[in-house]
Design a protein around this nucleic acid. Structure first.
Length: 282
DNA sequence: CACCATGTTCCTTG
DNA sequence: CCAAGGAACATGGT
């Protein structure tokens, strides 16, 4: 469930739940997800530490922890494509693909991830490569334009570059371009200033609306199948409609464009699906 | 069985 | 050296 809005909503949900809780024991069930930390090093560091803060940066979660003695440190989480993090009662059954389990006493913190593409590690260097937060003051049209001017890549592909803006993924890249009325195939360096301004505003609008939408959904990450279908997972037949209506082009090939009823197209760019309206997006 | 999937990194090619 | 494209990672859904 992982682009910026999903991670933001998760961070807001999780922060008060983990705040002040102390880790009693650490179970690394998939060594891969702690790389480049070693399972032993991670376990030693986390055991006895208390959660003192949680924030989001791009698609990452930054857990602030205070050890029994010594200085505050951080653990970096990433959900990859299919990761989830939640608290559950200590005696509830573990999900099949639990990668990390933190014993918090009556509760436990679980990071589970069927594909194990995500991370839960002490190494925070990935943050250094991130560009500005799209919803923050550092993401200015000037800076955005300057970065785009240096790239001949298709704009859709460029939006996935986390050093350009942090947190836009495959879904919201298509959504932002639709909102801005720009073809995903335009070369980044060929966009006019006015178009860049539109795209800049569209990125912010699409992401903040998604956060607002997600924030209004009662979340239940307790591992159940029920309250966890936020965002784009909510499109099963039994799912509420609020989500379906939120995405205007993503995964909607062949459906009518909400503006002009032209059939939405799917194309492949850099081995990833892109969805757009060939009439509204030039 | 075939193909697709919200992400990131690494390798190859040009 | 750089940019761009593709494969790999591992599992599940359709």
């Amino acid at each position: 469930m992982p682009e910026l809005p999903e991670v933001e909503v998760l961070a807001r949900h999780l922060a008060p739940l983990v705040q002040g809780r102390t880790i009693r024991a650490v179970d690394v069930r998939r060594a891969k997800v702690v790389e480049p930390s070693s399972p032993r090093a991670l376990a030693r560091r986390l055991a006895g530490a208390t959660f003192t803060g949680l924030e989001r940066r791009g698609k990452y979660l930054l857990f602030q922890l205070r050890p029994r003695r010594g200085e505050t440190f951080f653990a970096l989480g990433h959900l990859g494509m299919t990761g989830r993090m939640f608290l559950q009662p200590a005696r509830a059954p573990l999900p099949k693909h639990a990668a990390i389990v933190l014993d918090l006493g009556r509760l436990r913190f679980v990071y589970e991830d069927p594909r194990y593409f995500g991370r839960f590690t002490l190494d925070t260097t990935a943050l250094d490569a991130l560009g500005p937060e799209p919803l923050g003051g550092e993401f200015t049209v000037e800076r955005f334009a300057a970065a785009l001017a240096r790239s001949a890549q298709a704009i859709k592909v460029k939006l996935l570059d986390q050093s350009l803006v942090a947190g836009v993924g495959n879904i919201y890249a298509s959504e932002a371009l639709f909102r801005a009325g720009l073809s995903p195939r335009r070369a980044a360096c060929r966009l006019r200033r006015e178009e860049i301004g539109r795209l800049h505003a569209a990125i912010r609008a699409v992401l903040s609306e998604a956060i607002d939408c997600g924030s209004t959904i009662p979340l239940d990450f307790a591992g159940g199948r029920n309250g966890d279908r936020l965002f784009y997972f909510g499109r099963a037949a039994d799912a509420p409609d609020y989500y379906t209506e939120r995405l205007r082009v993503y995964d909607r090939a062949g459906h009518p464009c909400p503006n002009c009823a032209t059939s939405i197209r799917r194309v492949v760019q850099a081995a990833r699906s892109t969805y757009f309206c060939p009439r509204c997006q030039r």
